[in-house]
Simulated scan of single mutants.
Amino acid sequence: MALQWNGLLSRKLSSSSSISSLPSWISTHIHGSATVTRTIWTVSPLSMGRRSSKIAGRKGAQDAKKAKLYARIGKEVVSAVKKGGPSPVSNTALATVLEKAKELDVPKEILERNIKRASEKGQEAYIEKVYEVYGFGGASMVIEVLTDKINRSVAAVREVVKDCGGKMADPGSVLFKFRRARVVNVKVSDADKDQLLSIALDAGAEDVIEPPVYEYDTEEDMSESYYKIVSSAENYSTILSKLRDEGVIFETDNGSELLPISTIEVDDEALDLNKELMSKLLELDDVDAVYTDQK
């Protein structure tokens, strides 16, 4: 796959740098001289003839992502209340979750509903689990689960993976291929590229990644795609604040995202099979996110 590099950084901290060719949704690695403090670059790959790889119904996908976020925060609220009570004053774990929910713009009624839910008879605390899967064409997947019934969640995940023709992987055999980061998603139509890069640089972002460009993209397709601002946890709130100050509409992650360190290019058949497997996994209530190293 040919990669088309664009020099999109509005300001450079050094005139010399070298960048490794990585796919668009992978954090680019900077190899500057000793005098370089930080440089942010973006990459926009041109994918020829891969229109079928685009996720249909982007708005539906974003709505589903938001629903998963709200569900995950709700589960975290329940777990925190079960462990330390409903008062954030005395329950530091709950206070932390509520602060996180505020940062991620989770509606207040969702928080209140789950605080009440935690006191219901029979409601158990939620436990985090990670399942690893081998997909098709050499691609791997990581499934994040937050569940109050471990046996239920693992059985559901195994059933979907088996039905779709994938294979469960041993713990640790896939996870090492990913790194965790905070990510802010900004729709292309909601931001000026140069303005976004300037905001990200000032706020200490690690990378700003352009969406992939497909051969048959229309203007509407492009306007519905997203920039990814990659950040450390320490700078995340600062980036959100600066975006709000500038009136830029954005979508947060669910607390973090897993970004693949390198990616696997697969053929169209494997791509469609992996897409179906991920879609089926995300339909499970216990599953909060599915990540892949597929290009």
Rank of each mutant, 00 (worst) to 15 (best):
A2W: 12
L8Q: 12
L8C: 11
R11I: 08
L13W: 11
L13H: 09
L13C: 02
L22H: 01
P23G: 00
S24T: 08
I26Q: 12
S27E: 13
I30L: 08
S33Y: 04
R38V: 14
R38H: 14
I40G: 15
T42S: 15
T42R: 11
S44A: 04
S44F: 01
S47H: 14
R51V: 11
R51G: 07
G57C: 04
A61H: 12
A64D: 12
A71Q: 14
V77N: 09
V77T: 04
V81L: 02
K83H: 10
G85V: 03
P86K: 09
S87D: 14
S87E: 08
S87P: 15
S90K: 11
N91S: 13
T92D: 02
T92E: 08
L94N: 10
L104Y: 08
L104H: 01
D105Q: 01
V106L: 05
P107S: 02
K108N: 08
E109L: 01
E109H: 02
E109W: 11
N114G: 03
N114L: 00
K116F: 15
S119T: 15
E124D: 10
E124W: 03
A125F: 07
Y126L: 05
I127G: 07
F136K: 15
A139S: 12
A139L: 06
V142Q: 03
V142G: 01
I143K: 05
T147D: 00
K149T: 13
V161A: 10
K162Q: 09
G165V: 13
G165C: 06
G165I: 06
G165F: 09
K167R: 03
D170C: 04
V174Y: 06
R179P: 09
A181D: 05
R182K: 04
V183H: 13
V188W: 00
S189Q: 07
K193Y: 03
K193N: 06
A200E: 02
A200H: 12
L201A: 05
D207L: 01
V208C: 01
P211M: 07
P212H: 08
Y214Q: 01
D217P: 11
T218G: 00
E220V: 05
E220S: 02
S223H: 13
E234D: 06
Y236E: 07
Y236F: 11
T238S: 04
L240Y: 06
S241T: 07
K242A: 10
R244C: 09
D245Q: 11
E246N: 14
E246I: 05
E251D: 05
N254P: 10
S256H: 02
L259D: 07
T263L: 00
I264T: 15
E265H: 00
D267N: 01
D268K: 12
D268G: 04
E269P: 03
L271F: 06
N274A: 02
E276L: 08
S279P: 06
K280L: 04
L281G: 01
D286Q: 03
D286K: 04
A289I: 04
Q294H: 00
K295C: 00
